[in-house]
Design a protein around this nucleic acid. Structure first.
Length: 554
RNA sequence: GGCCCCGUAGCUCAGCUGGAUAGAGCAACCGCCUCCUAAGCGGUAGGCCGGGCGUUCGAAUCGCCCCGGGGCCGCCA
């Protein structure tokens, strides 16, 4: 619709150049927008204003010439007017809008999908929590956002892979092993001295108990180092399994679980570091190997190999990211907690150093979640291990409410998550508000079916029966959905779809309260049924896109 | 000290990559169920868009400075 109107405007400008009513000959970018106020039409363009300089004419004069050349835009427009400093406002003929209903009904679950991504392979890596404990609430937000962004990109036609990077190679593995090993000894009756930096959560005791049940205390007979290693590997397996299960119950599945350790076993780290060295990007100092990231905009050089010969986390990260591109991804997205934002410059520096464009890596920052209950903060002590887990929250408020709240705000702004509100079954709760709209339409369908009326089929409906402004507005809102998806995908901003959903639900609820779908007039009933089923389809598509359910009853 | 994010209604936040009279939800107040689900709807009230300067036809939006809140600056992961 927008596209067609834009083409008409382009043609009008060319016509003006031909007839001489405009003479600069420069074709401007025509920008069409949906005005904030309905009195300003369905679409508006500022093109007359942007052309003012090159034409050396008053914007309104230019607008007049354009409008004259435009006519009614080949039947597209019912009214065109010039307003304000030189805006051209377009009012589209109602028939234009009702076409969208057929489109929605024909495409069904595909309505909203597009191919702007042209199958470009993109990888999005998210969650990637260390397998040293259960997922907490912050991981949950990253999970919900990462998953939704992946779905958005898929809907926009990109070829998306979801990946989880498993940090199974650092010091924390040893620390995990030691923590479990000590708890195991404790279970056996030994007195232990638990280190300050150990993993103190109770889940460690559970892991130790499970290890004992599986294998007895035999592990403790091994040499200490070996014993700790066995404990660590065991713990990681158990905890990673727990994480995967938590994510699954949260509705998230990864295409690939990528082991950090495998970077070493395949010698990828050395290979990539050698490439850096070859390009003269590394140097030795104080016995350590450094990456000259300052060369590419970082404020400090970074250590790759410590003076004791062990690689840093950064070293494997370099190898990991380089390999992502070697695997063929054109674009790579990382979803990180905001506390890691300091790592962005150095990762971008790595890309630049190895000849990639820094824009090929996009880092999505996930800000903190403030957990509240009835307005009061829920205290979380990470040190004591008493943080709130994702599992706890999902169990308490449900998957849908949880995901919805995580997606409700821009990812880079802090989020207040009120458990009491998320659980509440009232109109204060935005999750139910949207889902209820869907359930209501299903209910209408059930009633219609009882009256012998099935949801109407495209082509057998007289949409001219839809004469109300509210009906036209609903059609307009449905028409915006595909571009909302594309916009949200390209900006990596799933919250836009939440807002879209809330608006659509509001419009529907209002319509529902004011008008009856099932009326005395059969043709009107069919037309309205057709309309609300198009609404239902879009509600469902958008809900599913965000990993939320579209319930038929509530 | 350096860098990042944030500052919009009493509260929580949108504001589509510069547009027209700045929006929504909650809270407050007033209304609506013999009617397809009241988990709903309608209405009222509420604003120096933190402040200043600049860029231009036009700024909540872009740039610089200041104020305020949060975060990050390891040979930790």
């Amino acid at each position: 619709m927008k596209q067609r109107l834009g083409d008409q405007i382009q043609k009008a400008i060319e016509t003006c150049f031909r007839t001489g009513s405009l003479d600069s000959g420069q074709l401007p970018d025509v920008h069409l927008e949906i005005p904030a106020h309905a009195e300003h039409g369905d679409f508006a363009t500022n093109v007359a204003m942007t052309m003012a300089k090159q034409e050396r004419k008053a914007p309104r004069k230019i607008a007049e010439a354009l409008v004259a050349a435009l006519g009614d835009g080949e039947g597209l427009c019912s009214k065109i007017e010039i307003a304000g400093p030189g805006f051209i406002n377009f009012y589209l003929a109602p028939g234009c809008w009702y076409g969208v209903l057929d489109q929605v009904m024909r495409q069904g679950a595909d309505y909203g999908k597009s191919d702007v991504g042209a199958g470009v392979p993109i990888q999005i890596e998210f969650v990637s929590a260390n397998p040293t404990g259960p997922l907490h609430i912050g991981h949950g937000r990253g999970a919900a956002v990462g998953d939704a962004v992946a779905s958005l990109l898929t809907a926009a036609g990109y070829d998306v892979q979801r990946e989880y990077y498993v940090n199974d190679a650092g010091n924390q593995v040893g620390l995990l092993g030691r923590s479990i090993w000590l708890r195991l000894k404790e279970l056996r009756g030994d007195t232990i001295d638990f280190p300050e930096d150990g993993y103190r959560g109770d889940y460690i005791k559970d892991v130790a108990a499970s290890l004992r049940d599986d294998q007895g205390y035999g592990v403790l007979d091994l040499a200490e180092d070996e014993s700790i290693e066995v404990c660590g590997l065991y713990g990681m397996k158990v905890l990673l399994g727990m994480i995967e299960k938590d994510l699954q119950e949260f509705g998230i599945r990864f295409d690939n679980w990528y082991s950090e350790k495998s970077l070493y076993t395949r010698d990828m780290v050395n290979t990539e570091l050698a490439k850096l060295a070859q390009k003269g990007l590394t140097f030795k100092e104080d016995g350590a190997l450094w990456f000259r990231t300052t060369e590419y905009g970082d404020d400090k050089d970074r250590v790759l190999i410590r003076s004791d010969g062990t690689p840093t986390y950064f070293a494997s990260d370099v190898a990991y990211h380089m390999e992502k591109f070697e695997r063929g991804f054109k674009k790579v997205i990382d979803v990180w907690g905001a506390d890691h934002h300091g790592y962005v410059p150095r990762m971008k520096a790595v890309l630049k150093g190895l000849g990639h464009s820094p824009e090929d890596l996009e880092v999505l920052m996930i800000q903190m979640v403030n957990l509240l209950r009835g307005g009061e903060p829920v205290t979380m002590g990470k040190r004591s291990g008493s943080f709130v887990t994702l599992r706890d929250v999902v169990e308490e408020v449900g998957k849908d409410a949880c995901r919805f709240f995580f997606l409700m705000r821009r990812a880079d702004s802090q989020l207040d998550f009120d458990l009491a509100l998320a659980k509440e079954q009232s109109n204060d709760n935005p999750v139910y508000y949207v889902q209820y709209a869907h359930a209501r339409i299903c209910s209408i369908n059930r009633n219609a079916a009882d009256a012998g009326l099935e949801p109407p089929v495209t082509g057998k409906v007289d949409v001219s029966k839809l004469v109300l402004d509210e009906e036209l507005d609903l059609a307009k809102q449905l028409q915006r959905y595909p571009e909302s998806v594309v916009g949200a995908a390209q900006a990596l901003e799933p919250h836009r779809i939440i807002y879209y959903l809330q608006e659509l639900a509001t419009q529907f609820h209002s319509y529902y309260n004011r008008q009856r779908v099932m009326t005395e007039d059969l043709e009107t009933s069919k037309a309205r049924l057709y309309l609300v089923n198009a609404v239902r389809t879009v509600l469902e598509n958008a809900l599913l896109l965000l990993g939320l359910n579209a319930p038929e009853r509530m």
